[in-house]
Design a protein around this nucleic acid. Structure first.
Lengths: 216, 216
DNA sequence: TTATAAAAAACAGTCGTTCGTTTTTGTATG
DNA sequence: CATACAAAAACGAACGACTGTTTTTTATAA
């Protein structure tokens, strides 16, 4: 039998890893056996070891494959948002991130596996220098707003955007994976609107922020 | 041998569960064996089954025990904050929650185990009706501010406070468990200050929010 | 002595991995 | 065009260690 082409190998690995993913996110890494993976993928036990040296390598390959998908998806999201600090674009961001979580909540489950069993070795890059990355991506937009003095000078817009991004993700993850059940007491659309309002305007009126007004 | 008193039993269970916790958060539920737990606790394998019917019961007991500790700790935090929407109290909240995460990050690891392997059955109450709970706890404070018209009327103060609470927790969890490594590009104290600023004032200047100003 | 706790041994499976074998298939040969 | 060959892929039995749980035995203290 001739050697399989690189793409065919990748296809087969992808097929195996889809099966593995299904089991890992349901029973965890140690809760899933190689036999189950093989069976789920319709492949023999021994043959798995032609593609992966160890069980852990399956998880690693799966995560890095998924990471590309997620990264691409996020790039797609951000490419739809040119001016991220417009209120209407916060709303748009929220809804797009809702879609990401709904389509790929498994990715975060894999991340929790990684956190638990591998000290988040494989997924930590996801958070490294997050604000800096956004700062670079939306460089010109942030600079323009800054120059126009439309921003609260106390907060770096990159930090603000990162916070909003994380908050949206977190909100939908709590809803999807943690059983939040409308934990803010709002439906999802309202939540996105209220979060947007909060990020843009803040919680307090300008008058309240003159400290003396608060202390009476 | 006479029957052990209820408190002695609870002490022994606590001791066993401390050992179990150590192992569970390191290797996950299925990655930890009963023998390891017994050995770590300095108890015989068979004797464990005098205290728990199954391995899962150890985790359940551990989680519910930890839940009480965490709940108490949170109550302690909130009792230190009478007027949660004062900017200086946001800062205080942030620092207190930093302490909670630093002291009890294991609780969240257990929660991720619960999410992964038990659909968050045991921990989901943590998020249920969160905003409502805060709304009730800080009832009078929120009402007072509302009456004084110091609040952004677009956002329920309970929702705003819940969001801030979750954001602080999430920030420190990312730092502690997910390898964030100053993901906002700030040290922790700065991050608390900037988050506070963001929650109170928002990201945009009042002038920016008149939409026409934005679209030129 | 007796009820109970603790320990040890036994049980029936399952685990990740290895390995010898069989099947498959493109290529080279006649 | 048919055959033989060889390399690769697929398979599944076997290995030794380990699994959660049950049962049996021993130690302990009123």
């Amino acid at each position: 039998m001739p050697k399989l082409s690189q793409e065919v190998v990748e296809e087969k690995k992808d097929h195996i890893e889809q099966a593995a993913k299904k089991l890992f996110i349901k029973h965890g890494f140690h809760g899933t056996s190689i036999r189950q993976i093989a069976s789920q993928a319709g492949v023999s036990l021994g043959n798995l070891y032609n593609y992966y040296k160890t069980k852990e390598e399956i998880l690693e390959s799966l995560i890095s494959r998924y990471e590309s998908i997620i990264t691409e998806r996020f790039n797609d999201v951000f490419s739809q948002i040119e001016e991220p600090l417009l209120p209407e674009n916060f709303v748009k961001l929220g809804k797009l991130l809702q879609g990401v979580v709904e389509d790929h909540s498994e990715f975060w489950l894999l991340m929790y596996i990684d956190v638990l069993e591998f000290d988040n070795q494989h997924c930590r890059k996801f958070f490294q220098g997050l604000a800096k990355k956004f700062g670079q991506r939306f460089d010109k937009h942030f600079y323009k707003l800054k120059k126009q003095k439309l921003l609260n000078e106390e907060v770096d817009p990159a930090v603000g955007f990162t916070v909003a991004y994380l908050q949206f993700l977190n909100y939908f993850l709590i809803e999807k994976l943690f059983g939040g059940n409308h934990h803010l007491g709002l439906d999802n659309d309202e939540a996105v609107l209220k979060l947007t309002e909060l990020f843009c305007r803040g919680l307090l009126c300008p008058e309240a922020l003159e400290e003396n007004l608060f202390h009476n």
